[in-house]
Design a protein around this nucleic acid. Structure first.
Ligand code: NAD
Ligand code: NAD
Lengths: 203, 203
DNA sequence: AGGAGTTTGTGAACGGGAGAACAAAACGGC
DNA sequence: GCCGTTTTGTTCTCCCGTTCACAAACTCCT
């Protein structure tokens, strides 16, 4: 988030910023920001602040987005299409190298300039492009088997959009994005608001 | 997540489960599960476990998904289409009542059985359907102005997919889903793996 | 009826993130 | 060259979520 805020500041022509300004752009407390940055090193100047371009590079280097990461997306349905068409990944250091789907009727399609290919091609694509990050956008029932194949093919980081709990060997990272849960959390707070005001009490 | 795990167990015909089983389904520690459930009440039976159907209802009641929540989606581009077409929201207690977009050329379209309507209709739709939850799937530059309009119209919970920091009045909840950040976190861990093994050291 | 075996609910310990506060360091003016 | 001002880097404290561990409670078998 700090990296994104710095890119925004750089685009606005800002060359230097204080922890206070940067924290405001990122939506956090300035003490937290300074502490977070201190884990990377002492890249600021006391009395002055941080050099936007310099700090931007240091953070990018630390999180490993100085070079592009190849990514494969499996499951080119509603969500897979959106992800494939999303330009933001490219500009943030990720390059979608392949779109895979188990349904042969999808293999004719070209999405975002890429052929949708057979899931069977996973291993060869991973080897060819040295892919370590995979995105799962299949239905929940298929997600575990897709994850297993990914791991066997050599992928060691998985972003899972299916509402499922994946089990993977040690050394493989999984992050889950669960949109229904996000809405449910909002609904929970909404309900508490209405109960508090008595607008919509549930018997 | 517990609710989802319970629904899965119920579909499998399980009528009773222990904290250990349910925790495994949800991917958490069993002590944590028991403590979490204890905040809702004592719905288990010692020596036996939890009644799946009963606990399912109790959790659903607590988080407020016993009745449907109306939702509006603003920004019917790549992501908005996917969200509108997603059937999982409906089955988890959410009903998309309107799709809004600022671009008039999109207003002809019908997505998932709903007309794409003008963003100007926001206020009347919110009032008519008593909507309290809004989803923002517009570009980042538009997200703050969309959020402001939503809040003015009476929406008090926002799910934001744009990579932006929204500022809203007290009493309004915002949750942010940031897919690029998720990938960056995976890339960071990937980089650390390669540095550790010396495969891909960065000078 | 009573004891063995299970499983929940919860008190206590632990760990870590977040914020307040302040010393150290850099800059600028004179 | 020195002092006041600004802002970072870091320490200390607080608070909250997670986990362990165990007593209480329930079932089943004899
Ligand atoms: N669409 C959304 O906005 C949305 C929102 C939240 C969560 N999700 C989740 O994301 C996942 C995808 O959603 P969707 O709406 O795109 O579904 P979808 O049905 O439109 O697409 C799923 C795609 O996966 C492919 N597939 C199925 N099994 C496969 C396998 N074993 N290997 C490879 N490909 C396979 C199908 O052919 C299909 O093209 C689901 O798990 C869903 O719950 C989607
Ligand atoms: N597509 C993805 O998979 C993806 C992934 C991560 C994040 N995002 C984020 O989600 C957002 C949407 O992404 P997208 O790919 O769907 O973009 P998109 O450009 O395809 O769609 C954006 C839509 O918003 C509409 N819009 C613009 N300004 C508006 C306004 N003021 N009011 C109402 N509607 C307005 C546009 O007409 C367009 O239809 C972006 O912020 C993007 O960064 C998308």
């Amino acid at each position: 988030m700090y990296l994104r805020a710095l890119i925004g500041l750089a685009e606005d022509g800002t060359t230097t910023c204080s922890s206070e300004e940067l924290a405001a752009s990122a939506g956090v407390n300035s003490a937290k920001l300074r502490k977070d940055l201190s884990y990377l090193g002492s890249y600021g100047t006391r009395g002055v602040g941080y050099d936007v371009e310099y700090l931007r590079y240091q953070i990018a280097r630390e999180i490993g987005v100085t070079h592009d990461w190849p990514v494969v997306i499996v499951g080119i349905g509603n969500l897979g299409h959106a992800l494939a068409n999303y330009s933001g990944f490219r500009s943030r250091g990720f390059r979608v190298v392949a779109l895979l789907d188990a349904d042969p009727s999808r293999h004719d399609e070209v999405v975002a300039g890429l052929d949708v290919r057979s899931f069977e091609d996973l291993e060869s694509i991973v080897t060819e492009h040295d892919v370590s990050i995979g995105v799962i956008a299949t239905p929940a029932v298929a997600s575990q088997s897709v994850a297993d194949r990914m791991v066997a093919a050599g992928i060691t980081s998985i972003l899972n959009f299916a509402p499922s709990v994946l089990s993977v060997p040690d050394g493989v990272d999984v992050r889950k994005v669960d949109l229904s849960i996000e809405l449910q959390i909002l609904a929970y707070h909404e309900q508490r608001k209405s109960v508090a005001t008595g607008t919509e009490g549930v018997s």
